[in-house]
Amino acid sequence: MRQAYTYRPNGKNRIRETGEASKRIVLSLNTALCAVYCLSLMLPLIWMLYSAFKTNLEYQQDIMAFPKSLLYFENFSVVFEKLRIIRVTTVGGVPARVTYGLGNMLVTSFYFALAVSVINVFFNTVFGYILSKYKFRGRGFLYGLGIFIMVVPIIGTEAAYFRLIQQLGVYDNMVLTVLSAPSVAFSGTYFLLMYAAFKGLAWEYAEAAFIDGAGHYKVFLRIMLPMAMPSMICLVTLNFIGMWNDYSAFLFYLPSYANLSYGLYIFEQNAAQYGVNPPVIYAGFVIAAVPVVGIYSVAQKFILQKFTVGGLKG
């Protein structure tokens, strides 16, 4: 190791590594850049938050100024009152209009996000476990196929997919959309993460259980699954947040339904038609953001520690 000796007349001589000064400079520069970047992320959020408490007049006079009062909740009541999404569905072959209020959208968001994330992560876990811990004919093929799907882009199939889901009745059917979610559960980042999680778990626990007479299902459900739970919680949380925030599924594939993200998206795009001003829109954004920030704050320990992706080799 290269070291430098610093002589000081007062006798407090010291030995230090030569890279220390450059380390400090790089780290300070890095920290400053992190701070600037994070500030840039916070700025629009803080702006959104305090703008939600402004009257329209205050907003129009100076869009950057702070509100006169942080107790002005009128914009939030307007969101509750005016956020209505009308979607068209067919009941018994007859077109019918369905109106979604804020409450309905919240419920739809919750159930959709929960169902999709649980079913997705469960099957990613199943494949991660089986492909990392069992040797059987077809294992290598499945793993290779998963990687092939990830790295070989087959482009332009959206039209065929759109036609297919219409033919199968999945289009505009919430239950079937959720059930068809894990169609490539042995590919993608989530699968790789679960694969790596199980690969790192010792198999001795399972072997001991087999000796005690446990079957494969019992070993998976009672022993291995609990051990992989932190990784699963990380993925369920991330997937839940992703689905909560997803408006595109409702825009493209579920025209009779509306979740909160879709509702706010339409609300923002058609603000003039709804007769709402920007502070009301920001109040809506605040309502949508609060639940996921809460969930993330609770689960961040798992997310920040467990989200690791390795290479593509098996």
Binding site: C38, L41, L45, M48, L238, I241, A288, A289, Y296, I303
Partner: peptide, 21 residues
């Protein structure tokens, strides 16, 4: 803190960030 803040666009929804932007 930086780690928490950098994750915000993934948490608070891309669409809120997008529409705010």
């Amino acid at each position: 803190l930086w780690r928490f803040l950098m994750m915000l666009p993934n948490i608070i929804s891309a669409f809120i960030f997008g529409l705010l932007f």
